[in-house]
Design a protein around this nucleic acid. Structure first.
Lengths: 172, 172
DNA sequence: GGAAAACATTTTAGGCTTAAAACAATTCGG
DNA sequence: CCGAATTGTTTTAAGCCTAAAATGTTTTCC
């Protein structure tokens, strides 16, 4: 059993936690800055993709996923990788199949599963866009030194892990 | 006039720049990681706002802007601050006026301008949500040390400046 | 003063996005 | 085996979002 002074201390710190809410303004500012950076870059890339290739960002992102998977992916895989809802992918894929960029077929071993892959056209167009896209990104980050890039990578990895942990603890 | 050896060197480096495109894989990875972090946190916040308060993230964001401006803002101001299109704001405001959270009036000095502000209800609800929201953010970033937070702030400020510069140079 | 440019907002058309419900197919446990 | 969960996808309803054109208003600058 704790000494009286310890119990008083515990009570104090508990009371403090309840009555004087901690200041999290720094984290809030960090979050807003993170969001600003992403929105800024995303908007720029979106605009360039439209102007230069008349393609939307979500389409480009989906093709990017498939380019890394020559044997195709299931819709669920894509949905998890892109961190978007299932229904979202259904619609995106529909339009890309329609335009001839994607090939969609039902798996032979599991008839629930749809496997999608890039068509020859889809792959060619994606490669063309991706090459230019990479230079845009390089340009947008041009003022960062290699050290800045490394450090940001490290801190964002830590951020991602922290956020995933926090998110997971709410959804067990 | 440069010496022959210098000219050869110049030709070499120019040729290299054209024929062997530089490798920007690191920047690309950085961009994807930045996007992942934002998407992860944004999704988490969106879900909690919906579950806890039955409000959407864009509505919350708009109210957050107005909470900082007791005298109201014009739609253009809001649109610039939130980095979304004008038309987008029109619709958001419409729904928030409809639900009684916002007050909208035409400026008396310039009849083009609409000034919006939070109603009493809107402000009260926002404050309630914002208090909880702040703890979610703190939780999502909980594994970062104060030093990590400072360093991220610094690097993201640099990133933002770099991206803005690059974006501006394309749209003069 | 009046045409032209600039500005603030709304409208339009189309696409993206989500959460939740519905449907279909497979796997699991008794 | 067979009913119950689980899994993969689609559908639905509502809202978000953009780019571009349209509308109304103010400013600029001959």
């Amino acid at each position: 059993m704790p000494a009286l002074s310890d119990r008083i201390h515990m009570l104090d710190s508990e009371t403090k936690a309840v009555e004087t809410p901690e200041d999290h303004a720094e984290e809030l500012r960090l979050w807003l800055r993170l969001l600003t950076c992403t929105t800024l870059i995303e908007g720029e890339v979106r605009g360039r993709l439209r102007q230069r290739f008349d393609v939307t960002l979500p389409r480009f992102d989906l093709m990017a996923q498939l380019d890394k998977a020559p044997d195709g992916m299931t819709l669920s895989d894509v949905s998890k990788r892109m961190m978007v809802s299932n229904g979202n992918v259904t619609g995106l894929v529909e339009r890309l199949v329609e335009s001839g960029h994607l090939d969609r077929r039902t798996s032979e071993t599991d008839r629930r599963v749809q496997v999608i892959r890039l068509t020859k056209l889809g792959r060619a167009e994606f490669r063309r866009m991706a090459a230019e896209h990479e230079t845009w990104i390089a340009d947008l980050f041009a003022d960062l030194t290699p050290k800045d890039v490394r450090e940001l990578m490290r801190l964002l990895a830590k951020t991602k892990a922290s956020a995933q942990k926090s998110a997971a603890s709410r959804r067990p």
